[in-house]
Nucleic acid binder design. Structure first.
Lengths: 339, 339
DNA sequence: TTGAAAGCGCTAACAA
DNA sequence: TTGTTAGCGCTTTCAA
């Protein structure tokens, strides 16, 4: 019965040479006899030798593994980001370890512990909506563990970040509502602490101010739980003495919940109330009426985050955190009126 | 300047005890003085000690990491499966490393190499549509590396598997078409080698045979590329001298492509042609008309695969491969006629 | 209850 | 060009 996994020692023994020579041959070192190298590589192939990265990692103190933490893997936006991270990383010989915080700070912390214990070379994180305080990340930075934040970022940390232009995206969305004749535009978002929600709200405010529409506190609703609360939020808006004639939603799932309420109530979209979402999830082009929304380049965000991260590793000395802002795009569909 | 990461040696030095005692204390071994243990745990916390799993793994020859290979992370079905795997694994102290084959055998192989080099404790795999030959997996089995296949499985490997009841799901879908009055039902699927496509085709055939409808070769189309080919396939079906009055599609994305063609041609759904999909992706409930489809418990499939895998690791000796078949559910919506 | 020591598989000085 | 050796951080046997 043969060994489950051959080691360089097995190769060395069979070839009657030293393990360091085998090591050199495998790593394509310059100072090794071509014939020796050939023999080693041949035997390695024959025995289905696979280098033990665990041992390598321990020795060179680098795992070539990136830890990734997202709120929810199954959200289309995040799975697209992950896809981008994975593809870029694989190309550069990095593996990725993935965790989901499920929007819980507690789980986020335990994810990070697990990843640090696994000695990932650093972390790519999109914060949970519960995360207001980032002490747990400051510890990492003190330990010199590289971090890149994406999408759900915080200004409290001096690290590289990748975001889309949330402010401008929201601005464009609200501007489109105004240009198509809406005058009383509501906003449904998440908690203040959620970076993307806050930025989009700012974009909303700046857009209405820019077009001389008074800001009305009543028209802005923050949801704690974005999976459920927007339904109630929509009802609340409809019960207002002065109904809004448009709702700008912080993302597509929120917009879809709002749309369901409007449909139930028999309110015509976009004539009575217009609707704009954010993200451009696949659903939004197929729903009836199809959703006007702001597209975010999710896949590209993943690629960019991985790229920034690997660059940081390659330039440990002269590294300066940078923030990449990716462009958004207004996708006009049928939940907004024609110009 | 302090060490980026404390080791048990650091703890031992500071406490003036041996590293083996520290190790024991940290692992909650029975034979260690409670006071010593307390001191160790306190100092560990104070120094933000994180055990080095790389070193542990090398020593105990177990990484507590599961390798996962899926065709495409960003497909909703797979990201849901991954979510299930991740959650179950994390609960049992396993990390997961994720790769995507992008439906390429070559990439699938290189993914597997990477994961094996990282000495994952085993693999959870959903095969690429290109994978007809599974030699690369037989090598792993020879090396005693545990494998669990899910969804895209093969009968050529004697390992544990998790699938949904594709045959029965397809049967139910086609049966529903027949019961709602369809008589000439087409099938659009993937390559024969793709397990799920093949099973669903069998379900289709058995259903029409069961209801005494003759099988017509013309009505069955296999697509190489499921992202693009179904459009052409639909056109082909429409150009048939005798048009079908229903199309059973091997999954929802295919059904959506078919629907687009039907809409362009102004064909009424479901009156002229009915449509049934498979998977129940989120899109299918929102598209107009909403898609009748077969729901697959993706998240549960992930949980089950992870569970089977961990059970296998825990029972190495007396392990026997088993296949779990999860139930499907017919979701009746508006692309099929009323009963 | 504790410590000394070997060794997991690999890399990288250093020596030959 | 090759070999010897130490050691990455940990677990575990054996002895004290």
């Amino acid at each position: 019965m043969k060994n489950p996994q051959a080691t360089i020692r097995d190769l060395a023994l069979k070839l009657n040479i030293s393990i360091s020579t085998v090591s050199r041959a495998l790593r394509n070192a310059p100072d090794v006899n071509p014939e020796t190298k050939k023999a080693v590589l041949e035997l390695a192939k024959q025995l289905h030798y696979e280098p033990n990265r665990v041992a390598q990692s321990l020795r060179i103190k680098k795992t070539n593994t990136i830890g990734v933490v997202v709120p929810e893997i199954a959200m289309h936006f995040f799975s697209s980001v992950i896809s981008g991270i994975q593809e870029y990383s694989a190309k550069h010989d990095y593996s990725i370890m993935i965790c989901q915080s499920m929007e819980s700070l507690r789980t986020e912390k335990s994810n990070i512990h697990m990843l640090v214990s696994n000695r990932v070379d650093g972390l790519l994180i999109s914060l949970s909506s519960q995360t207001k305080n980032v002490e747990h990340l400051e510890h990492l930075i003190a330990k010199q563990i590289p971090i890149v934040l994406f999408d759900r970022i915080t200004s409290d940390l001096d690290v590289s970040k990748v975001v889309v232009d949330d402010h401008n995206g929201a601005f464009k969305g609200v501007e489109h509502l105004i240009k198509t004749g809406c005058k009383r535009i509501a906003f449904i978002g998440g908690p203040d602490s959620l970076y993307v929600s806050d930025q989009r709200l700012r974009g909303y405010r700046d857009a209405i101010r820019n077009y001389n529409i008074a800001f009305d506190e009543e028209l802005v609703i923050h949801c704690k739980d974005l999976h459920t609360d927007p339904t109630e939020a929509t009802h609340k808006l409809l019960d207002l003495p002065q109904r809004p004639d448009a709702i700008f939603c912080m993302n597509d799932p929120v917009a879809i919940l709002a749309m369901q309420v409007l449909k139930e109530k028999g309110i015509r979209i976009p004539d009575e109330i217009s609707l704009v979402g954010f993200t451009n999830e696949p659903v939004s082009q197929f729903i009836e009426p199809s959703l006007t929304t702001i597209a975010q380049p999710a896949y590209q965000m993943g690629q960019t985050a991985a790229k920034l991260f690997i660059q940081q590793l390659d330039n440990k000395q002269e590294f300066k955190p940078i923030t990449k802002v990716l462009p958004t795009e207004l996708i006009i569909r049928n939940t907004t009126r024609k110009l």
